[in-house]
Design a binder for these strands. Structure first.
Length: 283
DNA sequence: ATAGGCACCTGGTGGC
DNA sequence: TGCCACCAGGTGCCTA
C-alpha cells in the first residue's frame, strides 16, 4: 500500500490527534508485527506525550517526551485510523475493534488511533531519540526526494555506478528514500526511460531530469492524498485519488496515453515485481 | 561490495 | 458455492 505519498498522508492525518497530546494507553493485541515489539513497549509509551511527528522515507516517527521515539512502518497493508474527537470537545463512540487491529493508542483528548495490518509486514519500534538516524532501519536510507541532498549531480553520480536496471535502482531505498513500485513506474514513464535499461548506461542528460520528475510525481500524489488501490485509506477513512492519474501502473494492455502513440502498456516482471511501461515511449 | 531471489503473511479476484 | 492459483503498495536477509 504505502509509498512516500501515502505515508505522508497518513502522518498528516494523525498529526492533529497526536501532537501535543499524551498517550493515555497503548494496547497491543499481539506481541509482534514483522518483528517482536520491543520489551515493555506498551508501558513505555503509555503516559508519554507526543512532542511531534516526522516522516523519514516510509517511516513515521513520533518523538515522545520520554526521550524515546516511536517508529512506525506500514509495510504493504498497514493502515492507521483516527476515531473520536481530537479536539476533545465531546467524546464520540469509537468503532468496534476489527480483525487485525494490532495496536490501539488511546489519547488524552479522546481520540483513538488504531493500527491495522492484515499482512503484518509493518513494524513498530521504540528508539532512543538522541540516536536519531543511527537506528538500523534508518541508517542506510538515502536522501529524501524533497530534501537539499537530492539533486541532479547526486542522482547522476550514484546511478552511474549502478549495474542494475533503473527500475531496481530507483526502488533501492539507499539511493533515494520513499519510492515504491507504483511511483517508480510512473516516474519512468514520464522520463521516457525503459525500466529494463541499466542505470549505469543512461546518459546524464536523461538521468538529471528525473530529479524534477520524481518531485513532481510524489508532490502531485501527496496533493491528491495518495493512491487507493485495495485498502489504502486516509486516517479519517477517506480515499486517495492519485490512482486516477496513473499513466502506466495497473494499465496492462491499455492504450498508451501519449498522443501519437498507438502502443499498449506492457507488464513485465523484474526482481519479483510487476513493471508497467510503454514499449514505444520508454527506451 | 553488489545484485538477485526468497521469505515473511493475509486477503481478494478470477478461472474452472 | 467451492477450491485453487495467482497477485498485491515493502524490505531484510541469504546466496552467489
Amino acid at each position: 500500500m504505502p509509498e512516500l505519498p501515502e505515508v505522508e498522508t497518513v502522518m498528516r492525518g494523525i498529526e492533529p490527534a497526536m501532537t501535543g497530546y499524551r498517550i493515555d494507553q497503548l494496547i497491543l493485541n499481539r506481541p509482534d508485527l514483522r518483528w517482536p515489539f520491543p520489551g515493555g513497549m506498551a508501558e513505555r509509551v503509555s503516559g508519554a506525550k507526543v512532542l511531534g511527528l516526522r516522516r523519514r522515507s516510509k517511516y513515521i516517527l513520533a518523538d515522545l517526551d520520554s526521550n524515546e521515539t516511536l517508529l512506525i512502518h506500514l509495510g504493504m497493508s498497514g493502515r492507521i485510523l483516527v476515531s473520536g474527537d481530537p479536539l476533545g470537545n465531546f467524546v464520540r463512540d469509537h468503532p468496534p475493534i476489527e480483525k487485525h487491529d494490532h495496536a490501539i493508542f488511546s489519547m488524552e483528548n479522546g481520540a483513538r488511533i488504531t493500527f491495522n495490518d492484515p499482512r503484518r509486514f509493518g513494524a513498530m519500534d521504540l528508539l532512543d531519540t538522541a540516536l536519531g538516524d543511527a537506528h538500523p532501519l534508518l541508517r542506510n536510507i538515502g536522501p529524501e526526494p524533497f530534501g537539499n541532498e537530492f539533486h541532479e549531480d547526486y542522482l547522476v553520480n550514484i546511478l552511474k555506478k549502478k549495474n542494475s536496471p533503473i527500475k531496481s535502482a530507483l526502488l533501492d531505498q539507499r539511493i533515494i528514500a520513499g519510492l515504491g513500485n507504483i511511483y517508480v513506474c510512473e516516474v519512468l514513464f514520464r522520463a521516457g526511460i525503459s525500466p529494463k535499461k541499466l542505470a549505469g548506461k543512461i546518459s546524464a542528460k536523461r538521468t538529471a531530469p528525473m530529479v524534477a520528475i520524481i518531485r513532481d510525481v510524489l508532490g502531485e500524489a501527496i496533493q491528491a492524498g495518495g493512491s487507493t488501490l485495495r485498502d489504502f485509506r486516509h486516517s479519517d477513512g477517506e480515499l486517495g485519488y492519485f490512482q486516477h492519474t496513473f499513466k502506466v501502473y495497473g494499465r496492462e494492455d491499455e492504450a498508451c496515453t501519449n498522443t501519437d502513440c498507438d502502443a499498449k502498456i506492457k507488464r513485465i516482471f523484474q526482481s519479483g515485481r510487476s513493471s508497467f511501461y510503454c514499449p514505444k515511449c520508454q527506451r
